[in-house]
Amino acid sequence: MTAAADAAVPTPELAVLRGGPLERALARLSELGGRTSEFKGMLSMTLDRGVLVEALTAAKEAGLVMLTDVATVDYLTYPGHRGKRFVVIYNIHDLTGRERLFVRVELDEGETCPTATGVWRGADFLEREAYDMMGIVFEGHPNLRKLLTPEDLEGHPHRKDFPIGESPTLFNDGRFLDPATFRAGLMGKDAGLTGWKGGARDGVRSVQGTLPEEGGES
């Protein structure tokens, strides 16, 4: 590898292995009504919550035997989002670590999700964390209680309508600063000083500069 040839951040082989676990799992899950989507080499399958446990069992039998994570996203303030509010993502992969699938279930406020603890006992703490942080109830979970937050904290912190709870900075001479007004950065729905919404506008692509010849950067 020469110094000038800078490697890109590697994306896993998108070409799904013929006859491999991912291909079998995708076929089986499509039969159950899953919709496939792909982004930068990552494959996701969106399913109905009624067939989730069957889908996860089928994926496990197809070879995606390891559960990594149970992630949850609250799309309340996502610009341009029209679907249900929550999504629960089961991040599963096979024993070699090369084939990975994200199984997504979309839920509305108040809808429950069936638990995956019957398929992997390791989903126990992960689903409890999802319940505690996002408020998603997992039906059939043996011990669905708060995990990380204190007992007297009401609400679910990772929801978008839960405030971050910043305290203002109070100085000795009486001034106080509100942290939110000093923050850098914008959410996707904000327009910023120039009105440019950045990547949220479709068709805008980043321009790659050229690699400078001299060594070292300031």
Partner: peptide, 12 residues
């Protein structure tokens, strides 16, 4: 002083 964490979880 709560350090870099100014949120619901840390005593300031």
């Amino acid at each position: 002083s709560g350090g870099m964490f100014n949120n619901y979880a840390i005593v300031q």
